[in-house]
Design a protein around this nucleic acid. Structure first.
Lengths: 213, 213
DNA sequence: GTCTATACGGAGATAGAC
DNA sequence: GTCTATCTCCGTATAGAC
């Protein structure tokens, strides 16, 4: 990959990639807070610190911003994959708390993206598909891990792993969605408390009997 | 859910209440499918089979439609309350399936309202508040029931009832939200399958040990 | 109570100077 | 690469006829 060094006395000019990111970030923030249709190109330009016309130099139009952002879920997915891979086949009783924390922090960290995906899911098929694909991929990953723990005998053999995984993830997702406006400190406390209690219920429903052979 | 068939502008006169409902129904359908900001007053009029001007005879403006619809959650709440009350203090093992089915059918039946509440929650504080209040009220009701089952000794004493209730409800809500476009037949099948599996995991995590001392 | 006609502002988008 | 100026259309809302 060749570098594209901006040589010369570039004062306030930015590289194309950097500028694109800046515009997308501005759009994402506003889409999450006011919705796609409720956000004007003027507001995006203002948030990004540029003028309206420049948006059209980098993108075909407002709609393209939405599509581009929906694709960003791949970035999110990469993080999730590494999260799940790191845990390998360690015991669920010790690993699930870490997965829970990782998922919660991920969703929180990518909060605007998640809010946008959920909010616009029904108005824009591409967004809905991206959201569904994201959830499904994560669910599939977690399910795979659970299946391995079933095979290892830690989790009970008749555990419906797909639904168990979906329940786990969607509960935490919904928790975030209804608490997104908490400040970081309050969020830390609430999230920890909620996650702990959820693991209590969930693990008991999934574990094999301790007194099994 | 397909759009209602559009009737041309009618000369029929309706009672005020009936006309208001008609307009609100049209608005709800469109808000759920295209979002509030993505819906034009023209489209609402068309969907309701009237002209644009008439909307302003019955409502102060587009924003008032949204607020009015958000208040409708009370209707939903009433249904939920009766659902929970009917179950009284019967054993959870036999009652939770009925509660699950009731909640799922309710959410499905009021699908457009639920989608609107979720989708617009972050863009409009009033809607967000209405959604939070709805979930919280239902969660509180279910939690109350769970507490009684704990007292009765059916559910374990250290069950975190608030989180257990929240998890149960939000899992099913999210299931609906990501499957809203299924036709009724497919929905029946999927919903039954999913609910059964969820109850399996959830109940095992909540019940007192059968082999307890 | 309902429709027709229209005002008014703002939205997305383009052209062209620098 | 960035901004200024501007175009066109459409969205909300109102006035007034029937």
């Amino acid at each position: 990959m060749p570098d594209h060094p901006q040589e010369g006395p570039t004062t306030h000019r930015l590289g194309a990639d950097e500028r694109r990111r800046q515009i997308l970030d501005a759009a994402l923030t506003l889409f999450a807070h006011h919705g796609y249709a409720g956000t004007t190109t003027k507001a995006i330009a203002r948030e990004a610190g540029i003028t309206e016309g420049l948006i059209y130099h980098y993108f075909g139009g407002k709609a393209e911003l939405l599509v581009e952002l929906a694709k960003q879920r791949s970035a999110l997915l990469l993080e999730v994959r590494s999260l799940l891979r790191d845990e390998g086949d360690a015991p669920a009783a010790r690993t699930m708390p870490r997965i829970a924390r990782g998922w919660v922090e991920l969703v929180r960290h990518q909060g605007d993206l998640v809010i946008m995906l959920v909010s616009e899911a029904h108005a824009h098929p591409e967004v809905g598909a991206a959201f569904a694909a994201l959830l499904d991929e994560v669910r599939g990953g977690l399910q795979g891990y659970l299946d391995r723990r079933v095979a290892a005998g830690e989790l009970r053999a008749d555990l419906p792993t797909a639904v168990a995984a979906a329940s786990f993830l969607s509960t935490l997702l919904m928790f975030f969605y209804t608490r997104a406006e908490l400040d970081d400190a309050a969020w830390e406390v609430e999230a920890r408390r909620f996650t702990t209690a959820l693991l209590d219920v969930w693990l008991r429903g999934a574990l094999a009997r301790e007194d099994a052979p």
